[in-house]
Design a protein around this nucleic acid. Structure first.
Lengths: 172, 172
DNA sequence: TATTGTTATACTCTATAACTATA
DNA sequence: TATAGTTATAGAGTATAACAATA
């Protein structure tokens, strides 16, 4: 779950003779973030948690987590691939992908079929229901989730943000 | 003011519908990322994992996790606060903060002392060793971790990125 | 009665080893 | 021998309930 915001008290009195040098928020109620505000990892984590939370809420009508949505997207873009290929592309370890697929398949969103050429591997494909669910989820993401983000930071910044994050994930 | 785009730039045209970037990587070996490349949450998660991984490596000499580093930073900026205040500010639940503090205190980096005014609460303070460790960690973060990031995306983009992430965490 | 720190607990994620059936 | 899917399991991270001491 998210981060609970404690609406803690307000400054009760001026207190100091001299104004605080650096951090302005230090008046016995609010804590000073200090150099935490400069830590990229911290900002990344907090933003990611918030974005996932909003994603979950936006896409609630189709009951898909961010991870499940990413699987459906990848299956749609790469029909006929096996579990190892899909899982590793998403950074999911093969053992952990099994339960994920079980959940999606039991909901009738995708199917595993043994490959005729290599009977060890399971070919993955979206079902019609899977495609319909994905389409509905995409619309919710676009009209609710991403729309709100663009409203907040603007289309240009969203594009720039995405490019920077992808570059960091790829090259850092 | 918008963000200087490093490499990837989209033509700003009022096109009717954004035609997918026509995934070029589809040669039976590489999987197509499809619309996954447009998902902010996905990019955020991947970047965050990578940044945390690099943080851990950069700061390995002082054996601090990102979460532990954030606690030390906050204790340094807010001496004399209690566990609840520090924990909630960091988005850590009080029960989960106990083991974290145990680890830091057992390493002699901080101390809990009962507040004389309210004997229920534990006043937290960094020890000299804690301050020394934090100083060493800060230097490692600056010279290794953040330095590499700035080298990758540039100082201006780092500032803009930080501002956008903070805004998302705060207002999204 | 309410709050602080704490314990216990549970659920999700993630990570590794090892099994099976195929190759 | 090696690989794909699977099982079991262990460890983090995160969530809630409840208790003792204190207010």
């Amino acid at each position: 779950m998210p981060v609970s915001k404690s609406a803690v008290g307000k400054p009760l009195r001026p207190a100091r003779k001299d104004p605080p040098p650096a951090d302005p928020t230090h008046e016995a109620g609010e804590l000073a973030m200090g150099e935490l505000a400069e830590l990229l990892g911290y900002a990344l984590k907090r933003a990611q948690l918030r974005v996932f939370e909003d994603f979950l809420h936006s896409v609630a009508p189709v009951q898909l987590t961010p991870a499940q949505f990413s699987v459906l997207l990848l299956l749609d873009a790469n029909p006929g691939r096996n579990q190892t290929e899909i899982a590793t592309t998403l950074g999911i370890l093969r053992p952990n992908f099994v339960a994920m697929l079980d959940a999606l398949e039991s909901r009738g969103l995708c199917v595993r079929t043994r490959s005729p050429s290599d009977r060890r591997s399971h070919i993955l494909m979206l079902t019609d229901k899977g495609r319909a669910t994905l389409a509905r989820a995409k619309k919710l993401v676009a009209t609710q989730h991403e729309a709100r983000l663009v409203e907040l930071i603007g289309e240009d910044n969203r594009t720039a943000l995405l490019a920077m994050l992808a570059k960091i994930a790829r090259e850092f």
